[in-house]
Computed example of a mutant assay.
Amino acid sequence: MALNLPAYRPARNTQILRYLAFAGMILIAPLFFVGGPGWSDGPLFKSAWNLGHILFFALLTLAIQPWRIWTGWTLWGISTLAVLLLGTGIELLQHGTSRQMDWQDILRNQVGVWTILALRPRASLTRKSRPVVWPLRLIVAALLAAEIGATARVAIQQYHVSQLLPALYDFRQPDPSPFWDGVIAPVTDHAIDAHKRALRISLSTAHYSGVSLHNLPEDWRDYDRLVIDLYNPQDHPLPMILRINDMEHDLGDNNYNDRFNTRLPLTPGPNQFKLDLDRIKAAPESRSMNMQTIRRLILFTVALPEPKTLYLRDIRLE
């Protein structure tokens, strides 16, 4: 029996790896439909969660071991097609739940299966196709690095956000879309006096029109006031509304009396508003707002008769 041990151990290790892959796959599978990031979760959690597609389909490939049946381009083609159909089916099934379809997940699924195929000793290719082994591995490695790199960039972004205080937004950002929702763009011009950087907010005639700062430092406990500096280029007043809520409100039923709401009457030209944080904390009707988990700040108008423009020049805590 000792003579057979060297050949037996690799086979046994392969079976153990296969069983572990099956177990991991079974544990992960329900997460396609239960749990996961909701609409109120931050970008880092959402980005990291997306990597689970790569992990699941890598485990699925290890568990099934399709190279036991096919080889060469047949293996790659059938595996790719099978994962394409399975991934599409999962996205369609998710459409009927609270989860949203994300067709980029289908690419992540493919990256998972391709990663395992590319790591095979001979890349599961025949002798004639072996010259393409390393280019193929490099392509798969680049796709995998792009997905992991995207999550790493989000992690760095979120670290910078956590370090912004007392500022709530970095006006040096070239693209506000990872932080704001709405029609908003960075500007640098003399129309806003000495302020070299600002955000131009475009307001429409929709019933509610405005912008939402959803990616911001959350812990406001060490500060006393919120300062908002706005510039109204119109020659007439512009009525604005400010809304602030914490994570608990986002996870609740969106009750008007469970958040902070106030009017900001903008006169022509520069306007600065200073709001006591104690007032914001006491705004919810049946509780105190959690000043450690501020989740969203919204500036909006209601039923404007014509489109308007304003500039946000500063937003910070004191």
Rank of each mutant, 00 (worst) to 15 (best):
R9C: 09
P10L: 15
R18F: 10
L20P: 07
L20S: 07
A21R: 01
F22I: 13
F22K: 03
I28S: 11
A29E: 06
L31M: 12
G36S: 08
D41M: 06
P43A: 09
L51H: 01
L51I: 12
G52V: 07
L60R: 00
T61I: 08
W67A: 00
R68D: 09
T71A: 03
T71P: 00
T71E: 03
L75T: 00
G77M: 06
L81I: 11
L84R: 01
L84P: 02
L85S: 03
G89M: 07
I90G: 03
L92P: 03
L93S: 11
W103L: 14
Q104C: 05
R108T: 06
N109T: 14
V111W: 11
V111Y: 05
G112Y: 09
I116N: 01
A118R: 05
R122D: 01
L125Y: 05
K128P: 04
P131A: 13
V132F: 15
L136K: 01
R137I: 08
L138I: 12
L138N: 03
A141F: 14
A141V: 07
L143P: 01
A145G: 00
A145E: 02
G149E: 11
A155F: 04
H160F: 04
H160Q: 13
S162P: 00
S162G: 13
Q163C: 14
Q163L: 06
L164Y: 08
A167M: 13
D170W: 04
D170Q: 02
F171A: 04
R172E: 15
Q173D: 06
P174D: 10
P176S: 08
P178R: 06
V183C: 04
I184Q: 05
V187L: 05
T188I: 10
A191S: 15
I192A: 07
A194V: 10
H195T: 12
H195L: 12
H195I: 09
K196R: 15
L199M: 05
L203R: 01
S204V: 15
S209P: 04
V211G: 05
V211H: 09
N215T: 12
P217F: 06
W220R: 02
W220Y: 03
D222R: 04
D222K: 10
I228Q: 02
I228G: 04
L230Y: 02
P233W: 03
P233K: 00
P237R: 00
P239L: 13
R243W: 09
R243P: 13
N245R: 10
M247R: 15
E248T: 07
D250K: 01
L251D: 09
L251E: 12
D253S: 10
N255T: 13
N261I: 08
T262F: 05
L264Q: 04
T267E: 07
N271Y: 03
K274N: 04
A282S: 14
A283R: 07
P284W: 03
M289G: 11
R296G: 15
I298M: 13
I298N: 14
I298W: 01
V302T: 08
A303F: 02
P305T: 13
P307Q: 04
K308R: 15
T309K: 01
L310T: 11
D314C: 00
E318T: 11
